[in-house]
Design a protein around this nucleic acid. Sequence first.
DNA 1: TCATTAATAAAACGTACGTTCAATTAATTC
DNA 2: GAATTAATTGAACGTACGTTTTATTAATGA
Lengths: 213, 213
Amino acid sequence: MARTAGSDGERTEAAIREAAVDLIARHGYEAVTMRQLAARVGVQPAALYRYFQTKEDLLFILMREHMEALLDAWNNARPSSGDADERLAAFVENHIAFHIERRAQTHISNMELRSLSPERLTAILRLRTSYEKELRAILREGAESGAFDLDDIGLTAMAIIQMITGVIVWFRPDERLSVEGVTRTYLSMTMRLVGASTNRETHHVHAGTRLRA
Amino acid sequence: MARTAGSDGERTEAAIREAAVDLIARHGYEAVTMRQLAARVGVQPAALYRYFQTKEDLLFILMREHMEALLDAWNNARPSSGDADERLAAFVENHIAFHIERRAQTHISNMELRSLSPERLTAILRLRTSYEKELRAILREGAESGAFDLDDIGLTAMAIIQMITGVIVWFRPDERLSVEGVTRTYLSMTMRLVGASTNRETHHVHAGTRLRA
DNA sequence: TCATTAATAAAACGTACGTTCAATTAATTC
DNA sequence: GAATTAATTGAACGTACGTTTTATTAATGA
């Protein structure tokens, strides 16, 4: 029993986080054991507790930081001016780019709410609500200016979020579909969905795609 | 140790299934223990094994039957004739009705794939693919007839499925939003999304809605 | 009514979990 | 160089899991 030579707390913590994201996204939080996680990092299970007090702490921190990063990313991407069309476009683009880049984290963020304590669940839901409010504000602005034709702002916001987040479920960049291409198509569909007054371009129809569930 | 008076195999099995759906949807498959499930049903844990060989068997059966029921429901709802517009409308309506009625099962179906063995996962994914193919066929037909204006059939199919399935994440019928109303709005959005050539009705804009994540 | 089958309880098996504690070494600071 | 702190290991704690086995009763069918 000894401190391993060359060990570095920061590096070990980063390795724990990375391994946790991968294992939890792949197997599910409850199915991933601390022993499994430790083995993946290359430490004994007890070492994990030097960095995270409990297993749930680890999950919560990962989920909270993911949501905070998303809010941050949107704060940075949000146009300082421009009408609802432009804001919606920026929102969709930022959202898709952010989530495709963090597929594993997004899976965790969407799927592991059930394992959080009530207080922590509330905290995460609050962050989500903040983010959703941003989209609703854009939609409301568009509806009021007449740029969008909406039946129900809240419902439309949720439908859009579910749709654009759902990109991570099936999309893998390949020769046929690039991130840019997929983003463009999602943007086009979103604009239509909200009834945005844009010129309609003629698109070439592509045959089915090889999709993964 | 005795057989409980009044016990009835069919009833016990149904109770197990029902309790499993509720507990698993609420807490997650891995977090739900057989002891917990048995207590909920009112039997000892060993009794569960009379009906389901393993915990995973139970999960697989629930998930498989859910998918099979969905395919069945669509087989029964599919118009025997009609153009792409009508078929897509029928698809969306059936999909939303089916999933709202089975919120818990749908949660399980979408979230517990990770706990299945590879072979079983393959079996479920196959059923999913069958269902998605139905939507893709409708979209292809619409694209070919010119009724829809699609950039990419496969992508559009997945976007639609993610969006309309996502209704179960946030929607709870209340005074403001009814199942019928929500279905109508989703249908309207879907039609726009695919660029369907329909008359646009003027919708009254509703303010935000109280949503649950 | 009797034999068979079904349905259950109780006990236990074999294994595993999240976590704590104590000790040992390495790294850092003064 | 010595003291302090950090980072790890190894062992163990307290509890729990999915599952099997055996025995007992109830229900069903002939």
